[in-house]
Amino acid sequence: MSVIQYLQQNQKDVRLVPLNPNGTVSAEGLKGMLVPNKINYVVIESANTWMVKTTITALVASLSSFQIQLVVLEPNETLDSDEINFSNLVKLKLMFPSVTRSNLTPEGVAFENKFKKMNSILPSDYASRGFDVTFDTMMRLMQNKSFEETVNTIGTQQYANKFEYAKKEGDGYLNKGVYILYYDSDLTLKVAN
């Protein structure tokens, strides 16, 4: 409900899909809201497996007539259940925010290989984050500017993390760096532009 209230108060141009009396998504109502010849971003905010499944089914059925991309705003365990067909998420190019990304660049592969050679294991998310924070901080400290000047002007990207600092009320900074990822038709995760 809080997401609905937020949208109604702050995103007035966002349209909400009508629900059936039993609380499920109206497939016809949803299809009636889709716009031809334009990407229709459909944000799903539900942990109800039946609602997620019926919504995805309605969206996949509409792909022949409309361009649709499914979006989630935060991790949704329902999408990981056996009842949700992963291939449908790929067809809908599921888009979601993430603080990390896979790095398949030559430099990223070299980092993974070096880490594995030294530690006999691939880097975990915690190891990657630790490396990135340390490396990013060292790079900022080595410039001819104060750390505060660099965080106010320079957004950076390291092995798996992005750093875009914002001043917090009071003391300190907050990293607002986030990736928007999506599943591409080749079953890989890609960074949305």
Results as ranks from 00 to 15, higher is better:
1 M>D: 11
5 Q>Y: 12
6 Y>S: 08
6 Y>K: 08
6 Y>D: 10
7 L>Q: 02
10 N>P: 00
11 Q>W: 06
18 P>T: 08
19 L>V: 11
20 N>L: 15
20 N>V: 00
23 G>T: 07
23 G>F: 04
24 T>Q: 14
24 T>P: 00
25 V>L: 08
28 E>H: 10
29 G>M: 05
31 K>R: 15
35 V>S: 08
35 V>T: 14
36 P>D: 07
38 K>I: 05
42 V>D: 07
44 I>H: 00
45 E>P: 00
45 E>M: 04
46 S>Y: 10
47 A>K: 11
47 A>C: 03
48 N>I: 11
50 W>S: 14
53 K>S: 13
54 T>A: 02
54 T>L: 04
54 T>C: 02
55 T>Y: 05
56 I>H: 01
57 T>H: 08
57 T>R: 12
60 V>I: 11
61 A>L: 10
66 F>E: 06
66 F>V: 01
66 F>L: 03
66 F>Q: 05
67 Q>N: 15
69 Q>M: 07
73 L>S: 11
75 P>K: 10
76 N>C: 10
77 E>M: 06
78 T>W: 08
80 D>G: 10
81 S>W: 01
81 S>L: 11
81 S>V: 11
82 D>C: 00
83 E>V: 12
84 I>Y: 01
85 N>P: 00
86 F>K: 15
90 V>Q: 08
91 K>M: 13
94 L>C: 02
95 M>W: 02
98 S>H: 05
104 L>F: 12
105 T>D: 10
105 T>V: 01
107 E>L: 11
109 V>M: 10
112 E>Y: 10
113 N>M: 11
114 K>A: 13
115 F>Y: 15
115 F>A: 07
116 K>S: 10
118 M>N: 10
118 M>K: 09
119 N>R: 09
119 N>Q: 05
119 N>C: 01
122 L>P: 01
123 P>Y: 07
124 S>I: 01
125 D>G: 06
125 D>L: 14
127 A>V: 09
127 A>S: 14
129 R>K: 14
133 V>G: 01
135 F>N: 12
135 F>E: 13
137 T>K: 10
138 M>E: 10
138 M>N: 09
141 L>A: 13
142 M>I: 05
148 E>W: 06
148 E>A: 14
153 T>G: 08
154 I>A: 03
157 Q>C: 04
161 N>P: 00
163 F>P: 04
164 E>Q: 11
168 K>D: 09
168 K>A: 14
173 Y>F: 15
180 I>A: 08
181 L>I: 12
183 Y>W: 15
184 D>Q: 04
185 S>M: 12
189 L>W: 00
189 L>G: 00
190 K>A: 03
193 N>K: 13
